[in-house]
Design a protein around this nucleic acid. Structure first.
Lengths: 196, 196
DNA sequence: CGTGTCAATTGACACCGTGTCAAGTATTAG
DNA sequence: CTAATACTTGACACGGTGTCAATTGACACG
C-alpha cells in the first residue's frame, strides 16, 4: 500500500527533477508537464503534493539524498587551516550548485508569489550563511581575517559572494565556466577577506 | 490633440511609478491598479501601452528624465585618478539604485516570461557593464589594477559586485543601510581590484 | 448644422496555469 | 461481497493579461 504510493510519488519527483534539469528551471515545467512525463494524470500529482511549491520543496529533499549534500558540506570542516577551509567550501558549494541549479532556479522564481517557497528557500540560504560564518570564524581564529571587518560583516560579504545570483551572473552573463566560477571566486574571496 | 494624449499617458506613467515605488515592485501593481490610480479605465491603459512590459519599459525612460540618470553617470568620468573614479562610480550607481529600485524590480521579475522586458533589462545592465569596463581601464592606466586580471575578468568581477541582486542581498537580507552598501562595496572593490 | 475623428468607456470574452470538486474505475485485502 | 486505496476523467473557479466591439462625448472643420 505505502509501497505503491511511494512508487508514484517517486515517479513524480523523478520526472520533476528531470524536467527541471532539462529546462534549467524554465517555465516548461507545469504541473501538467510533470504529470505527462510521469505517465499519470495531473490530478494524481495533486494527490501527492497539494501545491506546486510543496512539490518543488520535496524535490529539494530528494536532491539532498541523491547528491549527499550533507556529506559535501562536511568535507570542508575537516580542513586544517582557515584558508584551506575557505577554499574547500567554495569548491564544495560552487561545485554542487550546478547539479541542483534547475531546481534552485524554479524555487527562486516562486519566491515572490509563494510564501512557502520563500521560507524554504530562505532556510536553505541561511544554512549557507551559517557555513560562511563558520568559515569566517576559522579565518579569524588563524588571525588571517582582515581586521577592519566584524565577523558579521565579513560573513555578509562572503555569503553574498557565494550567492546564487552572483554565480548565475558569472556563469551565464559573463560566460565563465563552472571551473572559472570556483577558481576566480577563491581568488576574489581571499583578496577581500585576508589581511595582506 | 497630442496635448491631451500626452496628459493621459503621463498620468499612467506617474501612477505606475508611484505604485511601484510604494510597493517596491511588488505584485500590487496590476494593469487594473494602475488604471484605478490614474482614474481611467483599464482599457485606456492598453490604448497607450500595448502590454505591461511596454509600460514598464516606458517608465524606465521616464525615470531617466526625472532623476537625470545621464548626468549622474557623467560625474564619475571627471575623476582624476582611477581610484577616485571607482569610488565615484560606486557612489553614483548605488546612490541611484534605491531611487529606481521599485521599477527595476518589477522589470527584473518579468524577465523570465517576457522577452521584451528581458532585452530592455539586459540593455540597461550592459550600460552598467560598459561603465565598469571604463573604470577598470582607468585603473589599469594608473597601473593600479591587480596584475593577475585581464580587463575582461576584472570588469566581470566589478560588474557582478555592482549587480542589483548583490545590492538587494546586502540591503534586505543582510540589513545594511544604503550608506553601508556604498561604503563597504568601495572597500571590497578596492581589495579585489587594486594591487597591494 | 451635420459629419468625422479621436480618446476613452463598458462589458464580454479568450487564454493560461493553479488549484478544487465530484463521480467513476480498478485493484487489492479482509 | 465489501470496503478501502490509488488513480482517472472532466468540469469548474480564480486571477491576471490581453483582445474585441459597440458606444459615448468632445472638439474641429466645412
Amino acid at each position: 500500500m505505502s509501497r505503491e504510493k511511494n512508487e508514484t510519488r517517486q515517479k513524480i519527483l523523478d520526472s520533476t527533477l528531470k524536467l527541471l534539469e532539462a529546462n534549467s528551471g524554465g517555465k516548461e515545467v507545469r504541473m501538467s508537464d510533470i504529470a505527462k512525463d510521469a505517465g499519470i494524470s495531473r490530478q494524481a500529482v495533486y494527490l501527492h503534493f497539494p501545491t506546486r511549491a510543496d512539490l518543488l520543496i520535496a524535490v529539494t529533499y530528494r536532491l539532498d539524498e541523491i547528491y549527499d549534500s550533507a556529506g559535501r558540506l562536511v568535507k570542508p570542516t575537516n580542513a586544517k587551516t582557515g584558508i584551506l577551509r575557505l577554499d574547500a567550501y567554495i569548491e564544495a558549494w560552487f561545485g554542487y550548485l550546478p547539479l541542483i541549479y534547475g531546481v534552485v532556479k524554479a524555487i527562486m522564481d516562486m519566491q515572490d508569489h509563494d510564501e512557502a517557497a520563500k521560507e524554504a528557500f530562505d532556510l536553505r540560504m541561511q544554512h549557507i550563511r551559517n557555513a560562511c560564518e563558520t568559515t569566517i570564524l576559522a579565518l579569524q581564529k588563524d588571525g588571517q581575517l582582515q581586521d577592519h571587518y566584524t565577523v558579521e560583516t565579513a560573513t555578509d560579504v562572503l555569503w553574498t559572494m557565494l550567492s546564487i545570483p552572483v554565480w548565475e551572473q558569472y556563469r551565464f552573463k559573463c560566460g565563465w565556466t563552472a571551473e572559472e566560477c570556483i577558481n576566480r571566486t577563491k581568488v576574489v574571496a581571499k583578496s577581500v577577506l585576508l589581511s595582506s
